[in-house]
Nucleic acid binder design. Structure first.
Lengths: 251, 251
DNA sequence: GAGTGGTCTAGACCACTGG
DNA sequence: CAGTGGTCTAGACCACTCC
């Protein structure tokens, strides 16, 4: 037979396409530049649009491309590193002076089931939900909800609920939380997909990939609060530098 | 007009389908159970198979489902938490006694460009590449390559290169690395897609979503080694517990 | 060989952005 | 309004697993 190669694993078209595009991105395009539209790219490579889109999806997942409906596909800047491990020194409460977040909203509502379990409260018990957001370089990169059981803020004046501004109520909850002695914290990171509300806030479509950082704040031998922060997975690189290392690099 | 609802945002079919399936998964299926095949599910919901697949993809990304070619779609167990922050106590070298990894292979080759930059070596300079793997509950969850510049292991006997067993060579490199004083480390986490070789090792298809953990090991005021570990994003939840917190919870 | 998920096609229409 | 990416369809064939 005339077979010149033993094709042990026939590479899918979209996979090959991805590497070709990736190389082209490195050599022929500048950050922010607009690519030809999908119909033209598909024609140029001789594939169906769906196949081309499969390759673009991968590249977007890797943070190489940014696609926006009605606009086009652009070359994405390198991912930004966002500090998660030592925002304002280790072992500080959220909302401590100098942290990277903007306090936005407050609501009293039941926590999601897994969070309620971590807090050790009933699934239908109302807790304080403080929403915060984080921006880097003018871009919104994360959206967070901090769940604080009422038991963690016993001194909170009842009349703050009357306060019309959500941000003011939120700050009051944080202030009260800071009275507790923080004993430690405990973080997990996992992949998720953006719910509709987070997606809107992060300027993405529902289902967009996000990195979910769940932090448990420990005090008094129990869990005093839990925060769930969702970061844009396409544009962010989470950084967990330990403080010794940071000092060392700076020196 | 007779419009009963203001449809501000018409929900895509696959998105609605996802929530329906997600609820069904919670209430009607047990972990490990096999779902009806894609053609039947599509018919049952009255959508094209591609649309059904879009919903399944999302659920797989969230770790709710597991799909295997030639076998079927099964309900996935909850994600396993894998400790990344304090494997064998903080500030220990990789390969220290008691860590969670299995040392497998060694190769002398140039490091990828970004790693070479971090190490401060030329892009084409050969470095030691030590491959390790990590399993949890019989399942391979991560695959790692540790890059060690020759300058970090000056005492390494030249004749280890003759050693036929890759694992033995790898262990020799680690042993020599442990002679250095570890000053600190610095970690980042980002989303990536599995390259062909990692995909095979992790029993996934190329392009599968992975969490890439890059660790920089600092010694002597510089970067002594860099490790790049890829974790299965569908089955893993990375945990960065600080040691105080662990002690507190155990007590 | 039968049945599964994975890839691919060629088309259509929709939602959104911008001039 | 024209042009973009996002959704959806109905079909085909392929690669893989297991009996």
């Amino acid at each position: 037979m005339g077979t010149t190669q033993l094709e042990t694993v026939p590479e899918p078209k979209y996979w090959h396409l991805k590497t070709v595009l990736s190389d082209a991105l490195d050599s022929e395009f500048a950050v922010g530049e607009i690519l030809p539209n999908e119909r033209e790219l598909a024609a140029r490579f001789g594939v169906a649009r769906a196949t081309l889109r499969q390759a673009l999806e991968q590249l977007e997942l890797e943070g190489r491309l940014q696609r926006r409906r009605g606009v086009g596909t652009t070359v994405a800047p390198p991912r930004v590193g966002v500090d998660v491990g030592s925002e304002a020194g280790p072992h500080t409460w959220p909302g401590a002076p100098g942290d990277a977040w903007h306090t936005e909203e407050h609501e009293a509502a039941p926590a999601p089931a897994p969070v309620a379990r971590m807090l050790g409260v009933a699934g239908d018990a109302a807790v304080h939900a403080v929403r915060r957001s984080r921006t880097t370089g003018g871009q919104q990169v994360a959206s967070e909800v901090l769940y604080v059981p009422t038991a963690s803020v016993p001194g909170l004046a009842a009349d703050v609920e009357e306060e019309p501004s959500g941000a003011a109520r939120a700050r009051a909850v944080l202030r009260e939380l800071h009275r507790l002695q923080l004993a430690g914290q405990d973080r997990t990171v996992e992949l998720g997909s953006a719910r509709a509300d987070d997606a809107r806030r992060l300027d993405r479509l529902p289902g967009a990939p996000v990195l979910v950082v769940t932090t448990r704040y420990l005090a008094d031998g129990g869990t005093a609060a839990v925060s769930v922060a969702t970061y844009r997975a396409d544009t962010c690189r989470l950084s967990f530098s330990d403080t010794d290392a940071v000092a060392l690099l700076a020196s």
